[in-house]
Amino acid sequence: MLPCALLQGVYLAPMDTRDGFDLTTGRGLMACPRCDALHVEEELDAGETLRCVRCGGLLAKPRGGAFVQLIALSFTTVVLMMGAIFFPFLEISRMGFGNATSLFGVALAFADGVLLPLVLAVMVMIVGLPVLRAFLLVYTLAPLAQGRAPYRHAARAFRWTELLRPWSMAEIFVIGTAVALVKVAGLATVHLGPAFWAFCALILVNLASRGFMCQTTIWDAIEDAGLPTDGREAVGGPVP
């Protein structure tokens, strides 16, 4: 668990080494990623929320048991996604003609000519990335939740989880489905398949996961749990 008190309005001379942080090396400090304001790392209790003194952006919001919850929600994502892939997604019928499509069918809609790369992109955005992010998050958090040392490359895994977040578009896909359904409604009768509801459930899981996610806490836990760093970790006790 981690940061932070504030260096608000305090002009600290370089070489200032008050307890807990060092302005020459940056030890024990944290910079707001949105406005660069310096904060001193300090333990936060679960449930507390820390905002940047300057821009008001969220810096940390540790929640009790968040790691276990995040792991559980990641598994839920994978299970729901499996259902979403293999169950029928939508089905329409009109005048005796009918057509059902699965999620693969949606992606393969672009499977002719110049549109081929779009098949891959759509599949990656709506299925690949949510599943990949879930696995990376479990990889990062599973040992931390048990209080063991993180696996190798846990830091890289978590960094990629965060980098890929904007490209994972399952929730946008659901809204797209809603728009498409209204467009089709006049043309034919539509039946919603289990995969559609699995996707709706995915949105809720995603929202819950976001509520428990605190990047600062996870970074700090990775560091505290002994991922090889240069040993400057200053959190959680007096500095020698």
């Binding site: 499509t101 949606v106 089709v184």
Partner: peptide, 11 residues
């Protein structure tokens, strides 16, 4: 883009 994909697959 998703709307186009869904419509083309469905209809």
């Amino acid at each position: 883009v998703f709307v186009v994909a869904i419509l083309s697959a469905l209809v």
